[in-house]
């Protein structure tokens, strides 16, 4: 008993009080900023070295839906590409993930793109079913961490549930392997409508480095409306939770 009290006193308060403003390591790679002064040759050079084809060779823009956050562009051309540690990068529209040169403001969701019923029905309670479809287990572990003692997204009524029948939506990780395509569809069908679809991690959003693999089947993603894109490799719990809070229209 005394030992347990000792553990409790060591443990202290572990929860992050304000998930909106929590600071993370300066080296964390979040929202990039691209200099407006980028030259065509710098853009072409960045595009050539980008391993996932996330950089547009003409404009030099970065598509966060394809970026693996390896930072090689920023290391090679530091006067143009800089990764800030801003983790609030989840958006509702796929095209909003493209960061253009000179774009320095924060990424925010497009309020008009949020379906009315999402906020009306799920604002105070959102239960999610997670399906890993070729995920590498880092994305899954970060989603698990979103519910842990530090990030505690349960405080907002957001939880992962064991059965799709209990869920209001699905969170997909991984590029969607061919072998998981059917199980993913069945799980989605088993969730009662209305329901949301959330993609967590670069692999889920675009296929990432697996996009061209013949073992991948992106049909489900291509044929469904996605409510929230959460980029990252893997998506940080703070990125995921902030994205959900924005989607649900919660101030804090």
């Amino acid at each position: 008993m005394l030992k347990e009290i000792k553990i409790l006193s060591d443990h202290g308060k572990q929860y992050v009080p304000d998930l909106r403003t929590q600071s993370v390591s300066a080296r964390f790679r979040g929202r990039p900023v691209i200099s407006a002064a980028i030259t065509p040759s710098q853009g072409a050079r960045a595009a050539a070295l980008c391993p996932s084809g996330a950089i547009d060779g003409t404009s030099g823009a970065i598509d966060l839906g394809r970026c693996t956050f390896c930072k090689e562009c920023a290391l090679a051309i530091p006067e143009v590409y800089v990764f800030t540690n801003d983790y609030r990068i989840a958006v509702t529209k796929r095209e909003d993930l493209v960061i253009r040169p000179g774009q320095t403001g924060p990424l925010r969701i497009d309020e008009a793109a949020v379906r009315n019923e999402v906020r009306r029905l799920f604002r105070r309670s959102l239960k999610l079913r997670q399906v890993s479809a070729g995920g590498d287990n880092s994305c899954e572990m970060e989603l698990g961490a979103a519910g842990n003692v530090n990030f505690d997204m349960g405080r907002y009524g957001i939880e992962f549930v064991a059965s799709p029948r209990h869920a209001d939506g699905i969170v997909i990780t991984g590029p969607v392997s061919e072998n998981m395509a059917r199980a993913l569809g069945i799980t989605y069908e088993a969730i009662p409508s209305p329901k949301v679809i959330i993609l967590s991690g670069t692999d889920a959003i675009s296929g990432g480095l697996f996009a061209g693999s013949p073992a991948i089947n992106r049909d489900f993603i291509d044929n469904h409306h996605v409510d929230l894109y959460v980029p990252g490799n893997p998506a940080h719990p703070l990125t995921f939770i902030n994205g959900l809070l924005d989607l649900l229209g919660k101030k804090q």
């Binding site: 391993p51 996932s52 479809a133 070729g134 590029p175 392997s177 061919e178 199980a183 480095l209």
Partner: peptide, 20 residues
Amino acid sequence: LGYQHRGIERLLTESGAGLR
């Protein structure tokens, strides 16, 4: 098992010694 198969050995072969 097999549900997670992404064909990563082939992708690694194609990537050679590169960053990818």
